[in-house]
Amino acid sequence: MWLDFFWAFVIGGGLCALAQVAMDKTPFFVSSAHILVAVVLFGEVLGFFGLYHHLIRLAGMGAAVPLCGFGNSLIEGVFAAMGRDGLLGVLTGGLSAGAAGLDAVIIIGFFSAIFLKPKG
């Protein structure tokens, strides 16, 4: 279990560090939207080649928490739905796999923005 904590920290931190290098080394201004999009696409490509689940098996939440994990669950959802529905799965799989996270972000985000006030 303690080793799991170690790998979650190292892989999760490593993915963030990688994104920071990409952010700082890109010659033009990189907004957080750019970096989030790049990270999601990165996760999708790794998921496409079937590599990302190895990372999840090693690092657990260290691979699931960074947004590449969201990208991976989109692509895994698409592949799983293609197994069920054929070509239509291309359209049905992605968002249904990411639904829990996405819905939570929208709903919790909505109420947070309504009821909370930033301090300072």
Partner: peptide, 25 residues
């Protein structure tokens, strides 16, 4: 400096993932 940025990203990002792992366990 790049090294400081990357180290901070590593530590904070890693800590958030570690927190996630704690919840998971």
């Amino acid at each position: 400096p790049l090294a400081k940025n990357v180290l901070l990203a590593f530590v904070v990002g890693g800590a958030i993932c570690l927190l996630g792992q704690v919840f998971y366990v």
